[in-house]
């Protein structure tokens, strides 16, 4: 029995065609010149209990609009949507009782209150009994070690600390479904890893269904077994992550800082070192876009990332390395080009 069922769902917005300049703005006041924007256009999918689904797509693809319809903020223009047996727009409150939401970077905790007070208020709001509350809080402590943050006000937390608190808070009432919208945006690598670990554990212990929207392919790779890719309101791909994994991993870029840096000479040195190991005909590029940093882009299936890294480290005077995050846009372009057919 699917916990979320979406069938032929569409959301269209009427948007005013704006004119330029002051005169244009005056004309817009009385304009009836609308165009229809199909933010979500005829999408269907089903999600089973306990799944972690990555719902991904570039900016403006329709991700947020879909989430807003699933959480009951927006009324669909057409189509059916059922979450946990409810129609979200009609039964918003009932739906909310079984749902946790992290939306963008906006905290839902009480800004001026100590963290622990927010948890206590949520306990009241969701009518969580004392036993469940103690159990959940104990678990959060084990997983995220938040005790030290409890007496601090939410406003004084760092972005990463706040996100940890927000995520655990969204699991407090033991919801059946949790929507996480960009939970790791703007965070550094170590806290990203902690958050991913936390989400995975929370999913495992309570079999919570999680819908994750993100730009960060790292999140998807770490958490999801299934992904839905949406672009321009349409579903581009829905299925096992393994098939698209090759696309994500097809090209990787390693950035290295070599000292001493002597411009072209150093770039050639790096290129020669790699040619020595892999030969002339391998598909890789070495170039510098920024003083002191050299980008090595290669195919993951021909040259495993770690191998390249180890080899370069052993042969070159490398001071610093970075593994560049993959851009979703590139993956989507490749799907359009027929990479999955």
């Amino acid at each position: 029995m699917a916990i979320i069922g979406v069938k032929n769902l569409s959301k269209h917005f009427k948007v005013l065609n704006r004119h330029e300049g002051l005169l244009g703005a005056a004309r817009d006041l009385f304009s009836t010149d609308y165009r229809l924007v199909k933010a979500v256009d005829d999408i269907s999918f089903q999600i089973e209990p306990g799944e972690i689904v990555g719902y991904i797509g570039p900016n403006g693809a329709g991700k947020s609009t879909t989430i807003k319809m699933m959480t009951g903020i927006l009324k669909p223009t057409e189509g059916k949507i059922e979450v946990n047996g409810n129609v979200p727009f009609k039964n918003r409150q009932k739906n909310a009782q079984n749902m946790g939401v992290i939306f963008g970077q906006r905290t839902q905790l009480w800004w001026d209150l100590p963290v622990i007070e927010s948890f206590k208020l949520l306990k009241e709001i969701y009518r969580v009994d004392q036993e469940t509350y103690d159990h959940q809080m104990g678990m959060f402590n084990e997983l995220a070690d938040l005790k030290a943050l409890y007496p601090q006000t939410v406003r004084s937390l760092s972005l990463g600390q706040r996100m940890l608190c927000d995520i655990t808070a969204s699991f407090l009432h033991n919801p059946k479904i949790v929507f996480l919208d960009e939970p790791t945006i703007g965070l550094d690598i170590s806290i990203k890893a902690r958050i991913r670990e936390l989400i995975k554990e929370l999913n495992r212990t309570h079999n919570t269904t999680i819908i994750l929207t993100t730009h960060d392919i790292g999140d998807v790779e770490a958490l999801c077994s299934r992904i839905i890719i949406i672009d321009q309101g349409h579903i581009l791909y829905d299925g096992d992550i393994k098939r698209v994994n090759q696309l994500f991993g097809a090209y990787r870029t390693l950035r290295v800082q070599v000292r001493p840096y002597k411009g072209e000479q150093t770039i050639d040195q790096v290129r020669q070192t790699l040619v020595e190991r892999y030969g002339e005909d391998r598909d890789f590029t070495v170039r510098s876009r920024e003083m002191g940093w050299i980008n090595i882009t290669f195919r993951q299936d021909e040259m495993p990332l770690l191998e390249v890294l180890n080899y370069a480290m052993s042969r070159l005077p490398i001071r610093d390395v970075q593994i560049v995050e993959l851009a979703l846009e590139g993956v989507i372009r490749r799907i359009y080009e027929g990479a999955l057919q």
């Binding site: 807003k68 009951g72 009782q97 709001i125």
Partner: peptide, 21 residues
């Protein structure tokens, strides 16, 4: 600012929740 959407996510009457802040 778009911060209004958080009031949709709780199992509470929205006017109540909004004004209670």
């Amino acid at each position: 600012e778009g911060t209004f959407i958080k009031y949709y996510f709780r199992p509470l009457n929205m006017m109540f929740y909004y004004m209670s802040e």
